[in-house]
């Protein structure tokens, strides 16, 4: 590592380590010598495995972020939350109706929401978590699905919720019900699936698989390109 990179001090589980300025929490921990086996996943902010609580220097506030997406600051105190032991109810999606009754049965804790907004404040994806909880309480499943769309299941909302709601699991049910029942069906898709099931393209595809490379190459370079 080049010598001229300025260092900052971070505290991992209370112990201080000097790490290069500009490190993310993950790379800072690795620089400090931690070989991570949990609390790490995609490293690009999509899987939610690296939820982390931290407190900045001279601040009383506990903040949260994804370790792979948060740049360390001098004096930062860090603790990772690699797993959230929250409830995951079991259901058969084919037997769940897309209505408020489903949520009353499967996620009754939703209705205990006190409207404190802690979930929204802690969400590292900046999702309006409380708003989608409220949408579910009103029975507006499509709205909840839309608002929660960018959820990566890090679990921080559930951890901080004083009403013991498992927001992120309720959200996946809302999205599945929306995708399955509430979004309009595409006629083109239904039609194409039926055509294929009836074997409409079978013969031509068979012919393609048997064609020699010269024929295929010609067809490939001659094909018409339509972009819109």
């Amino acid at each position: 590592m080049p010598k001229n990179i300025p260092m900052v001090k971070v505290y991992i589980l209370g112990e201080g380590f000097d790490v290069p300025e500009g490190s993310t929490i993950i790379t800072a921990m690795e620089h400090a010598g931690f070989q991570l086996t949990v609390g790490v996943g995609c490293r690009e902010g999509f899987c939610g495995a690296c939820a982390t609580l931290y407190r900045e220097k001279d601040d009383y506030k506990l903040q949260a972020g994804l370790a792979c997406q948060t740049v360390v600051t001098d004096g930062m105190n860090i603790a990772q939350i690699p797993f959230v032991p929250a409830e995951k109810p079991i259901y058969d999606i084919n037997k769940v109706n897309p209505d408020i009754e489903a949520f009353k049965t499967i996620y009754p804790t939703l209705f205990r929401c006190v409207g404190c907004n802690t979930c929204t404040k802690i969400c590292p994806q900046d999702i309006e978590v409380m708003d989608y909880v409220q949408a579910l309480i009103r029975g507006d499943i499509a709205k909840a699905a839309d608002l929660s769309f960018d959820c990566i299941r890090c679990g921080l909302c559930a951890l901080r919720c004083p009403a013991e709601i498992v927001q992120y699991n309720a959200a996946i049910l809302a999205r599945r019900l929306t995708g399955k029942y509430l979004l309009p069906k595409s006629q083109d898709l239904e039609k194409r699936v039926k055509e294929i099931a009836e074997g409409l393209y079978e013969e031509e595809l068979q012919k393609l698989t048997k064609s020699n490379t010269k024929t295929i190459k010609k067809r490939y370079y001659d094909r018409e390109i339509k972009t819109g």
């Binding site: 999606i93 019900l177 929306t178 995708g179 399955k180 979004l183």
Partner: peptide, 10 residues
């Protein structure tokens, strides 16, 4: 179609 039926929001 299968994914949509399982609830993917395309």
């Amino acid at each position: 179609h299968w994914l949509q039926d399982l609830g993917v929001m395309f």
